[in-house]
């Protein structure tokens, strides 16, 4: 069976990229995701109250999901540049899930963070932060999808 077959294709590709490179380069790739994380759209920059904090991360990060009428999910993150690891986790989730249908986001397994071959390079404790982000994204998407259906 294909490894990580239960991941959406975009996340599976990211997982394969990490797995295929030696440990020090994995950190470099995580840094690329950190740099690639888009800034908050202007309409959200003045409304920090709309974003949910993620206390599982050791550095401050806030996130917001939006679900379109057709069920498309948009992800927004806010994290400072002095927290590159946290930004990197957010960058992976953004690259992997932004623009995906709600059901795809909701089906992402909770242990995603442990499947990215980052445990040795980053440490399992730090990866908890990514799991915390994913759990909050899924809860928000679930609530917002239910509201749309209702």
């Amino acid at each position: 069976m294909l490894e990580n077959a239960d991941l959406p294709e975009s996340l599976r590709e990211i997982a394969e990229d990490f797995a295929s490179m030696p440990k020090p380069e994995r950190l470099q790739l995580l840094l690329e995701f950190s740099k690639g994380l888009p800034a908050l759209p202007e309409r959200l920059q003045d409304h920090p109250e709309l974003l949910e904090p993620v206390p599982e991360c050791q550095s401050p990060i806030f996130l917001l999901t939006e679900v379109d009428d057709d069920g498309t999910v948009h992800l927004h993150f806010s994290a400072p540049p002095e927290a590159p690891t946290t930004r990197g986790f957010a960058g992976i989730l953004h690259e992997g899930l932004d623009g995906a249908p709600a059901e795809t986001v909701l089906a992402v397994p909770a242990d995603l963070a442990l499947r990215l071959s980052l445990s040795e390079a980053v440490s399992p404790l730090r990866l908890n932060g990514m799991s915390g982000m994913l759990a909050r994204i899924q809860r928000q998407v679930s609530e917002k999808s239910a509201a749309l259906a209702g």
Binding site: L27, S34, E82, T85, T86, V122, R126
Partner: peptide, 9 residues
């Protein structure tokens, strides 16, 4: 550091 990537930045 606490943040494992700060050095790399």
């Amino acid at each position: 550091d606490e943040d494992v990537l700060l050095y790399e930045t």
